[in-house]
């Protein structure tokens, strides 16, 4: 295999990169630039800060109950704010998901049955189902378009929004925090 034989893989990488950039542009126009979304993001950030501040506070035994109540209230507000933010993002996510499905169909129509690259390792059986899909013979080092497309989706599609700074703020209500809080509650009881 030479560079000329492997151009299919490069074309797929290029298509996915351009499609992701276009999808992000669309998301920016439909969601990220809207006032509602900016306000929702600011609210999540603000509540994250407030909750962190409350978490750090050291309170006396008498004030512990009211402190716990205020944390509960903030957590509920944060949950609602992040739900609102995700809801606003949903429309564009569905639209982009559908357009990527269409893109996969188009790429599949063009490259099914073609070897687009040669793998440097023998994939395990589950991965072979993807890397050898649509190919003939028993040389499992051959790679079909599906594997390259999936790698692009995992590697490029997830990094571009981060690179452009379009990632939404994460709520700090993660499982590790909830577990720590539960432990603290059990300790005080």
């Amino acid at each position: 295999m030479t560079l000329a034989d492997a151009y299919g893989a490069f074309v797929i990488v290029g298509i996915v990169t351009v499609a992701t950039l276009l999808a992000e542009l669309l998301s920016y126009l439909l969601v990220y630039s809207t006032k509602d979304y900016v306000r929702a993001c600011d609210r999540v950030r603000e509540l994250n800060k407030k909750l962190e501040k409350e978490d750090r506070k050291v309170v006396s035994v008498e004030k512990r109950k009211s402190h716990e109540k205020s944390i509960d209230r903030l957590e509920e507000e944060l949950k609602q704010a992040s739900q609102k933010m995700d809801g606003l993002k949903m429309r564009s996510s569905v639209l982009i998901g559908l357009s990527f499905l269409l893109l996969y169909r188009m790429v599949a129509a063009a490259w099914t049955g073609h070897v687009v690259a040669r793998l440097p390792f023998l994939p395990i059986k589950i991965i072979q189902a993807l890397s050898f899909r649509g190919l003939q013979g028993n040389d499992y080092y051959q790679c079909s378009f599906g594997f390259i497309y999936t790698l692009c989706t995992m590697g490029i599609k997830s990094n571009i929004p981060k690179l452009l700074g379009f990632t939404s703020p994460k709520s700090i209500l993660n499982p590790s925090r909830m577990a720590a809080r539960q432990q603290r509650k059990v300790g005080t009881d």
Partner: peptide
């Protein structure tokens, strides 16, 4: 996870090109 995907992708592409 995305780093692993990028690694396998770039490894496969450069392996194919320099084969």
């Amino acid at each position: 996870f995305p780093a692993m995907a990028l690694f396998v992708l770039s490894w496969t592409l450069s392996y194919t090109v320099f084969l």
